[in-house]
Simulated assay, not measured.
Amino acid sequence: MEGSEAIHPDKLGPISMQEAWKTIGSFKALEQQGDVYVCRAERGGAAIVFLTEDLFRIKFFTGTDLDLTTTIAIQPVQESPASVEVQVEESVDGIKFGTSTLLVELDKRTFGLTVKNKEGQIIAEQKIISFSPRGAANAIFEMPTDSHFYGLGEKASFLDKRGERYTNWNTDVFAPHMPEIEALYESIPLMIHMHSGLSYGLFLDNPGRSDFDMRSHGIAFSIGCSTGSYDLYFINGPELKEVVKRYTFLTGRIAIPPKWSIGYHQSRYSYMNQQEVLDLAKTFREKNIPCDVIYLDIHYMNEYRVFTFDPVRFPDPDKMLSELRNMGIRIVPIVDPGVKKDPKYPIYREGVTDNHFCKKLEGDIFFGDVWPGTSAFPDFTEDRTSKWWLINIASILS
């Protein structure tokens, strides 16, 4: 006798329905909450806050609830910025927000956004933003004929991203890294747009999957996200250096790197043993070719267990490191945060007993298959886990 499983919806074949993307509707009201300007619409709204005269945040949302928390990408001091003098002018058609350097115009009918400089030049123009029933968002921007695009993290393509499309979703791609690959290891949702002698940046504060498409629309480009918030930061230039400077003001700046780290780095997949690494270093010195760093990929590890050396291929890592240091060469070993599931492996045991690994909602450790096979993954959202990881990094290089 068949039960309800016999008529499970999936057994009846796929149900094909087109998702109806919608805008948030037309303007309803303007509210000011401290330094935040909330523009309410029929099905959502947009919140605008100026962090400086040249940098503002606009967060689009659906429904009535507004959450202005940021991700950890934003420096804490920037979550509560100093007050910026903003002139607000409301008319029948729109609202204008003015600082000493920018004029931001919001269209009441479409919630389109136009950013101008004080000379009246259009810097950026977001034409429309729409949302899917499942929470995805997509915005369309004007793309002048002389547009050039830069940024977006590690991409295997051209410096200028015009005519390309990229997905920000960290992906381990074993295939040859050709320009056609749209996602790679490192995703940074910052895009710098240059046109008409102007530069500005758009930073999407969303750690989920996002798409920057400068290919599909011809006269426009789009920014979309599959989940999470459409939380955008506009970063004015007009020079590219000023965009980068203001972006690092927003997200943080690195310490001054050591001199050797900006020298020549030699890397490939992969150096298979200790002698090969030493021979390589000696060849650089014999041929008087500058070299400051040699990279070790996954083959230095013992069966791909992070924080180990293979006892056969790299029998005396201390001696190797000492010889390289005497030649003025440092080592950068890959540190893969996939910890092999092996009860005899100390790092795995520590991660389990001290609760350092990512877990599912039900409390089970999340496992995935990477280089070592079945592996657990450190939960770096916990500060104590980051400290534990750093201690192990120091131990392997000490």
Score class of each variant (00 low, 15 high):
149 F>W: 05
5 E>K: 10
14 P>M: 15
299 H>L: 14
64 T>V: 02
340 K>R: 15
201 G>C: 11
387 K>Q: 02
7 I>Y: 12
34 G>N: 04
63 G>N: 00
331 I>E: 01
342 D>F: 09
58 I>P: 00
80 S>P: 00
307 F>L: 08
46 A>L: 05
380 F>K: 15
114 T>Y: 05
128 I>P: 00
250 L>P: 04
32 Q>P: 10
139 A>R: 02
111 F>C: 03
224 G>T: 00
308 T>Y: 01
174 F>L: 08
79 E>A: 14
233 Y>W: 15
227 T>I: 12
110 T>K: 14
33 Q>S: 04
153 G>L: 04
114 T>C: 11
149 F>V: 01
307 F>N: 04
305 R>L: 07
366 F>C: 01
184 L>D: 03
254 I>D: 15
254 I>F: 09
352 V>D: 03
248 T>V: 13
323 E>C: 15
103 L>M: 08
160 D>R: 12
238 P>R: 13
215 R>L: 09
30 L>S: 03
240 L>P: 03
302 N>E: 05
238 P>H: 09
202 L>Q: 09
356 H>G: 04
105 E>I: 11
137 A>E: 00
337 P>W: 06
56 F>N: 05
287 K>M: 14
141 F>R: 06
168 N>T: 12
266 Q>T: 11
62 T>R: 00
165 R>C: 05
280 L>I: 09
176 P>V: 09
111 F>A: 01
367 F>L: 05
186 E>S: 09
2 E>Q: 14
198 L>Y: 09
122 I>V: 08
339 V>G: 03
236 N>L: 06
26 S>V: 07
275 Q>C: 12
164 E>I: 01
149 F>I: 02
290 P>Y: 14
143 M>V: 10
67 D>H: 06
369 D>P: 00
259 K>R: 15
204 L>Y: 01
195 H>P: 04
82 A>W: 06
8 H>C: 05
43 R>L: 07
4 S>H: 13
125 E>V: 09
163 G>I: 07
370 V>F: 10
388 W>D: 01
134 R>C: 11
346 P>F: 10
113 L>N: 00
349 R>D: 09
376 A>S: 04
240 L>I: 12
54 D>T: 06
79 E>L: 13
250 L>I: 13
274 Q>T: 02
325 R>F: 12
258 P>V: 03
270 S>Q: 15
101 T>D: 09
110 T>G: 08
35 D>V: 06
45 G>Q: 00
60 F>P: 00
35 D>I: 02
294 I>G: 01
23 T>P: 04
83 S>Y: 03
208 G>H: 05
146 D>Q: 15
324 L>N: 12
359 K>Q: 03
146 D>F: 14
117 N>V: 03
236 N>A: 13
65 D>N: 00
74 I>F: 05
188 I>F: 11
190 L>Y: 01
60 F>V: 02
230 Y>R: 07
304 Y>Q: 15
157 S>F: 06
128 I>Y: 03
128 I>W: 06
3 G>E: 04
346 P>M: 11
347 I>A: 09
65 D>K: 05
264 Y>V: 15
304 Y>C: 14
383 D>F: 11
350 E>S: 15
334 I>K: 08
304 Y>L: 14
62 T>F: 00
